[in-house]
C-alpha cells in the first residue's frame, strides 16, 4: 500500500471513530435519569410551553429521527441553547475552548520540550546519579494528581509568597484586548497563566521523560550508535542527531494520548485556578444540568483527542522512513 492509500484509509478510520464517538454521546445524554425530556426543560414552564419546547427540540420524534437531527446539528456546529447562559452554546464554547487550548497547549509544549531533553540525557548517562535522581523526581511528579500539584503551587506561590495571582485569567477591570496577541500576550495574562500552565507541565512531564529514557536505552544498544561514535562525531551529535532522533518516534504516538490526558486534566486545573476554560465550564454545566453546554464541551474535547491521534499517526509516517503502510 502506498502512502496515499494509507492516508485515505486513516481518514476513513477517523470518520468511523468520530461517528462512534458522537453516537456514544447521543446514547449517554439520552440515558439521563428520569423523564428523558426533563433535562431540556427549564423550570417554571406551563404544560403548553413545555409541549411546545419538546416539539421545538424534536423530542417527540422517534429516536432515529432525533439521532439524524442530532448528527446534522453537531456537523453544522449547532449545539443548541445553553440553559444557564441562555445564549447559543457555540458562542460560549468557542471563547472557552481557545482559553483551554492556550493553557493546556502551553503546559504540554513545556512538558514535552523538557521531558524529551531530560529523558534523552537520562538514557545517555545511564546509571549516573542524575539518572537515578531524575527517575525518582519524575515518578513523584507522575504520582500527583493535577489538583494536588495545583494546590501546592497555589499555596506556595500565590498565598504564601504572593508572586502570582491565585485565580482567573486576567486582573478584574483589566482591559480585554481585541486581537489574539493583545488577549493572550499581555504581561497580566502571562502572570495568570504561569501557575496553571506549570501545574500541567509538571504532571505531564513524566510520560515523555520516562518513555524517552527507556527508548534511548534501547536505541543506544543499536549497532549504529557505536558506528557513529567510531566515526568520531562529537558526543552531542551522536546524542541529539542520532540517538534522540530515533528515540523520539514513540513519543509522537504518546503525544496524542497526552493530549487526551490534558483535555481531562483541564477540567481539574481550570477548577483549581478558576480558569475560564472549557473544562471548568463543563463541570459547571454538569452541576447545573446544563446538558447542551456539557455535551458540547465533551464533544469538543473528544474531537481534539481524535484529531490529535490522527495527526500523530501521520507525523509518525513522516518521521520514520521504515513505516510500512500495513
Amino acid at each position: 500500500m502506498g502512502l496515499r492509500a494509507y492516508v485515505a484509509r486513516r481518514i476513513l478510520q477517523l470518520i468511523v471513530t468520530f461517528w462512534a464517538f458522537f453516537t456514544l454521546l447521543f446514547v449517554l445524554f439520552r440515558m439521563m435519569p428520569g423523564d428523558p425530556t426533563s433535562m431540556f426543560i427549564m423550570d417554571g414552564m406551563t404544560p403548553e410551553q413545555r409541549e411546545q419546547r419538546i416539539a421545538e427540540l424534536g423530542l417527540d420524534q422517534p429516536l432515529y429521527v432525533q439521532y439524524v437531527e442530532y448528527a446534522r446539528q453537531l456537523l453544522t456546529g449547532d449545539f443548541g441553547q445553553s440553559f444557564i447562559y441562555r445564549d447559543p452554546v457555540i458562542d460560549i464554547i468557542v471563547v472557552r475552548f481557545m482559553n483551554t487550548i492556550v493553557l493546556m497547549g502551553t503546559a504540554l509544549v513545556i512538558a514535552y520540550l523538557i521531558g524529551i531533553t531530560f529523558g534523552a540525557i537520562m538514557g545517555w548517562w545511564r546509571d549516573s546519579r542524575f539518572e537515578r535522581g531524575g527517575i525518582v523526581v519524575t515518578l513523584i511528579a507522575r504520582s500527583s494528581p493535577e489538583f494536588w500539584v495545583g494546590i501546592v503551587l497555589l499555596s506556595v506561590f500565590a498565598f504564601w509568597l504572593g508572586w502570582f495571582p491565585s485565580s482567573g485569567m486576567r486582573t478584574t477591570g483589566g482591559e480585554l484586548g481585541g486581537g489574539f496577541v493583545a488577549r493572550y500576550g499581555s504581561a497580566d495574562f502571562l502572570r495568570h497563566l504561569f501557575l496553571p500552565a506549570l501545574t500541567g507541565a509538571i504532571v505531564y512531564l513524566a510520560t515523555p521523560t520516562l518513555l524517552m529514557r527507556s527508548t534511548m536505552l534501547d536505541v543506544l544498544n543499536a549497532d549504529f550508535i557505536e558506528i557513529k561514535k567510531a566515526e568520531g562525531l562529537p558526543e552531542r551529535t551522536v546524542l541529539y542527531k542520532h540517538a534522540a532522533r530515533n528515540s523520539i518516534l514513540p513519543i509522537v504516538t504518546v503525544m496524542a494520548i497526552a493530549t487526551g490526558a490534558a483535555m481531562g486534566g483541564s477540567v481539574v486545573i481550570e477548577t483549581v485556578f478558576n480558569w475560564p476554560g472549557m473544562g471548568r465550564e463543563m463541570v459547571n454545566a454538569v452541576n447545573n444540568n446544563d446538558y447542551p453546554l456539557a455535551m458540547a464541551a465533551f464533544f469538543l474535547m473528544g474531537s481534539v483527542v481524535i484529531i490529535m491521534n490522527f495527526i500523530a499517526d501521520l507525523t509518525y509516517v513522516y518521521l520514520d522512513p521504515r513505516v510500512e503502510y500495513e
Partner: peptide, 21 residues
Amino acid sequence: RITDIVYGVPFLPFAIVLVAI
C-alpha cells in the same frame, strides 16, 4: 477499532458525565 475509539474518549470528562448520569 473499539480500543481506538476508547482512546478517543477523554477520561475525566467521560467519568464526570457518566457519574452525573
